Computed example of a mutant assay.
Amino acid sequence: MTQMPTAPIDLCELATRLARHASVLEKACIHNAYTQAESVCGSSRLGDDCAAIEDTASGGYLLFASEGMLESFVAEDPWFAGYSAVMVNLSDVAAMGGRPIAITNTLWASEGPACDAIWQGMRAASEAYGVPIVGGHTTRISTDAPAYLGASVLGRAGKHLLTSFDARPGDRLVIAIDLNGAYRRDKPFWNASTTTAPERLRRNLELLPQLAERQLCRAAKDISNGGVVGTLAMLCACSSVGVIVDLETLPRPTAANWMKWLISFPSYGYVLAVSEERVRLVLELFHERGIDAAECGIFTSGIGVSLRFGHLVESVDFGAGRK
C-alpha cells in the first residue's frame, strides 16, 4: 500500500538535491545523447521509449527498443543485469502501447560463472514474460576484461501510439507503479518482477496496449533510471509542457525515503498524461490488477518539473544542477 505522508518535508532541499543528482540530471539533458542522430533519423521522432516505424502492411507501427547495461551493474550483479536487459526493453515497448515480439542481445564476456549468470538472467526474463531470444552477437574476451551487455526488443503496436510528444496543458498526471515488491540490495531499484508470477507480469504489461487501443491515455513513458522526476523531465521536454507533481498522492512504499524513491527505477512504473474525463477509467484498470495508481498532478503550459506538497510548490531547477 502507498504511504500518505502527514509530516511536512523540506521541499526546497528535496528539489535542490534532485536537480543535482547525476541520474536525474542525465535524463533532463537526454537530448545531448541523440543530437548526432537527428540528421539521420528519417521520419522517426527522437525522445520516445522506442523507435516507432510505420508498418503499412498492418496499418500500425513496428517498435524497436534497445538498452545497454552499466559496466558496474554487470560486474556487481550479473544475473540481474541479464534479467534487466530484457525487462527494461519490454517495459519500453509497453510504454508506447505495443506488444513485444522478440529479443536479441549483444554480449562481450569471458567464459565462466559471470557469463553463465548473465545468460541465466536473460533466460529467466525471456521465460517469465514469454518473449523469445532469437539471436544477437557474442564476443569472447580475456578473463581480466569487464563484461559488456546490451539487448534489443522488436515489438508491434496498432494505429494509436502512446508517445512522449502528446501531453497537453491541462492533462492530468497519472502515475502507476506495482508496489508488490522490495528494494534490491541497497540500490534505488524497486523489484516487483522477479518475485511475481509470470502470468501477472504478462497481464500487467498488457494494460498499456489496452490504454492505447481504447484511447484512454494521450502520452506515456516508462519510469526509468532517474526515477519519476527524471522520466517526467524527458516527457515534458518532448511535449513542450511543464508538470506539477503532487507528492502527497504519489504511489510510494511505506516508509520509503523521499529522495531515494523519487530517483528509483521501479520494475513496473509509468507516468501518463490523461485527459480529466478519462482519469477514473484509467485508474480503475490499474486498480483491478492490484497496481497502485493515482492522479498525481497536472501538466501545464510552463516548462520543467515542479514538486507540490500541501500548499508549497518548488521547481526542480536543472539549470542550477548543471552548474
Rank of each mutant, 00 (worst) to 15 (best):
H31L: 08
A192H: 06
T300C: 04
Y270C: 00
E295M: 01
W190F: 15
I141K: 08
A51G: 07
V243Y: 02
L208A: 13
A237N: 13
R140K: 08
V316K: 02
A145Y: 14
T196P: 03
L25C: 06
A219D: 03
S224W: 03
R184P: 03
G230Q: 12
D292P: 01
K221L: 10
Q36H: 13
V228Q: 09
L18A: 01
S264E: 00
S193W: 03
Q3P: 01
A233G: 13
G319I: 00
G310H: 02
G130Y: 06
A33V: 06
Y34N: 07
L161F: 06
A94Q: 03
D292Y: 02
L18C: 01
G290P: 06
L107D: 08
V282G: 08
G227R: 08
E13K: 10
V274C: 05
S58H: 00
E276I: 05
V245Y: 00
G321Y: 01
A293H: 09
A95L: 03
R156W: 04
V88L: 08
D178E: 02
L281G: 08
R168W: 12
D171Q: 14
R278L: 07
L201G: 11
Y183Q: 01
G297E: 01
T195F: 04
D246H: 12
F265H: 13
R185K: 13
D186K: 09
R185W: 03
G181H: 02
E206G: 15
E127Y: 05
P209I: 12
V271E: 05
G112D: 10
Q215R: 15
Y83S: 00
C12E: 14
T196W: 03
D171Y: 15
S264H: 01
C41G: 08
G136S: 07
E38A: 11
D77P: 04
R218C: 12
L208V: 14
A102M: 10
A81I: 00
S39K: 11
G290M: 08
L285E: 11
N32W: 10
C238R: 15
T35K: 12
G150M: 12
Q36F: 13
R20S: 12
S264Q: 04
F318P: 00
